[in-house]
């Protein structure tokens, strides 16, 4: 993973020394992507806000232990994405009535991508029809720009599992893009 910029190292150092303005700079830099990543995985605005907020609170609690030679983003994104996966899985188990049936994930198989379900027409629907684990790797790769190796490290997964989830997730989403193409 890329080394942190000089500016980011200064913000982390400032925050560790008690500077609220340094923390605010870190927050403004990292909040939008953390919030958006949580939203794309959980597909629920209120939950995404709570998850991203909790990730920042966890970061604040552990700020003194943070090694400022390392980039702040991956540290935060690991917390966000893992919490979002846990939340989405719990939500799938108590799915509210009236929600679309596609996207229901029974957790039976590692690579369940709701095969056989109707394919929705937009990317948001396409994401929803993936399992939370598949959504997470797609979001880490294509929203947050991590390499498959970095994703494997962030999620504590074998590299092959990341590649397989990416491939299946992307095949599914690209089918939607293809279908819309004139």
């Amino acid at each position: 993973m890329a080394a942190p910029s000089r500016e980011e190292r200064a913000w982390v150092r400032g925050a560790q020394s008690g500077s609220a303005s340094a923390l605010e700079a870190l927050f403004r830099e990292h909040w939008p992507r953390a919030h958006r990543a949580a939203y794309l995985v959980v597909q629920d605005g209120a939950a995404a806000e709570d998850i991203a907020q909790e990730a920042f609170l966890a970061a604040v609690r552990n700020l003194d232990r943070f090694d400022r030679r390392r980039p702040f983003g991956p540290w935060l994104h690991r917390i966000v994405v893992n919490r979002a996966i846990d939340w989405a899985r719990a939500r799938a188990l108590r799915r509210e009535a009236g929600e679309p049936l596609f996207g229901e994930w029974d957790g039976d198989t590692e690579d369940n991508v709701s095969l056989g379900n109707p394919i929705p027409e937009d990317i948001a629907g396409g994401l929803r029809s993936l399992s939370p684990e598949h959504r997470a790797v797609v979001v880490l790769r294509y929203l947050l720009d991590y390499t498959p190796g970095e994703i494997a490290e962030l999620l504590d997964l074998p590299r092959g599992t990341v590649n397989s989830r990416l491939r299946r997730g992307l095949d599914h989403l690209e089918e939607i893009i293809d279908r819309r193409r004139p």
């Binding site: 925050a15 609220a20 927050f27 919030h35 605005g45 990317i123 979001v139 294509y142 893009i177």
Partner: peptide, 29 residues
């Protein structure tokens, strides 16, 4: 194309959420 579409999907109330959360984070800090 997929990357561009993903980046266009934003949470509802995105800016308001940021405004709501910052005081909480600052308070914890």
């Amino acid at each position: 194309g997929l990357k561009r579409e993903l980046q266009q999907l934003s949470p509802p109330d995105e800016l308001e959420a940021q405004r709501r959360v910052w005081p909480v984070v600052r308070g914890a800090f």
